[in-house]
Write a protein that binds this DNA or RNA. Sequence first.
DNA 1: ACCTGAACACCGTTCAAGT
DNA 2: ACCTGAACACCGTTCAAGT
Lengths: 227, 227
Amino acid sequence: MTDTTTPRRRGPKRSLSLDRVVEAALEVVDEGGPTALSIRSVATRLSVLPNALYTYVASRAALERQLVERVLAESDIALLAAPNQPWRGRILDYALSLRTTMLQHPAVALLIMTAPMDGPSALLVGERLIEAFTEGGLEPADASRASYALMVQVLGFLALEVAETEAQPPLPNESQRVAERRAALDFLDAEDWPMTTATRDVTAQWITTDQFTWAVNALLDGVTASS
Amino acid sequence: MTDTTTPRRRGPKRSLSLDRVVEAALEVVDEGGPTALSIRSVATRLSVLPNALYTYVASRAALERQLVERVLAESDIALLAAPNQPWRGRILDYALSLRTTMLQHPAVALLIMTAPMDGPSALLVGERLIEAFTEGGLEPADASRASYALMVQVLGFLALEVAETEAQPPLPNESQRVAERRAALDFLDAEDWPMTTATRDVTAQWITTDQFTWAVNALLDGVTASS
DNA sequence: ACCTGAACACCGTTCAAGT
DNA sequence: ACCTGAACACCGTTCAAGT
């Protein structure tokens, strides 16, 4: 006779859905890092037996793809279509925003290069990028090529950046990570690696926002220069 | 009394070494794809119990890093220092050669973005790239940044390219893979994705040598343009 | 130093059964 | 349609013991 009016809610068992499964998976990796992810750990978090998840995802790999889609959807894709903003700024703003989002879910950044980018959000980002590059004066064919080259640079950068960490939020500060890289570079013999040691201060900063912006700008320069 | 002069050789048990372990692991993924890789499968191939591998590698993750180092070492790094060749051509030649090598071991291309690029071969590639960019007129700091941006573009491209396949050699032809991408794009609604469908022929070719070369050249243009 | 033997605490995925 | 129950064939890693 307690609380018969509202459908039961306080028990752990709300009905499952793809969204709830993916959400639970995201919580698992955000709390426990990439190694914590398993069909069983997600099922446990949902108070359900492991095989119950197979109603919503075909496999562990499919769950990982949903995780990528989910985080990509969390990024602010609208920035790519911001009105009255120059095309270059829109692209750079979105790239920076995507990086921020991904670094909040570092384990997912590791998954992004291991599965095809074919979800609806990836499609939408591609569409908006081609629009922006066309506005920048590129022929449609070059706009398409440029949009892929840009995503490769951005996603590749993120994956390699996160790969140097434990991929467990919150990530160490950029400055801490730079200091660690710098310390590792100090072990190099200047006789063997003259160029690398001579540029060690910059090389230590390969994983920074500065380098990210520099690389994106270089690519934007390059794709517009040749047309 | 048979063959007592030479140390026994025909039995399956030559003594183990890091090289033999990594070699066996490479054979495992080349024959069975990325899912075939496990400490146990490599041990079985070496006719040894699983825990015997821990004399040579600290963990499965360490074995994966050795696999990346091994394939990177297989690439023709000397191309970056080819005498009497212009710096741009050397970089492009090496990028293409690295792609060829990686596509022969596609499962390893999937691993390359999940672990830090800190092996000796990665270091050597970085050193040679900085040299080449310096020769191209870049300041040391920019040469360092450019060399990382280039590796991000090349490795990111490879990972995403392989991620669309089963990552089991031999990979389907480029033309087969393009045809599959093209077929998938034909399902898109032109009303929803006008830019993407308008450029579908180019978009289908995102995973080709042509796009790879185009993107590398765009980046090379970009890093030299701004200096 | 390097391997075996045995065990521990996990995995993803399947099938049949209940409701 | 969606979940439980139970099982199968795996995992990575550890510790102690042999040689």
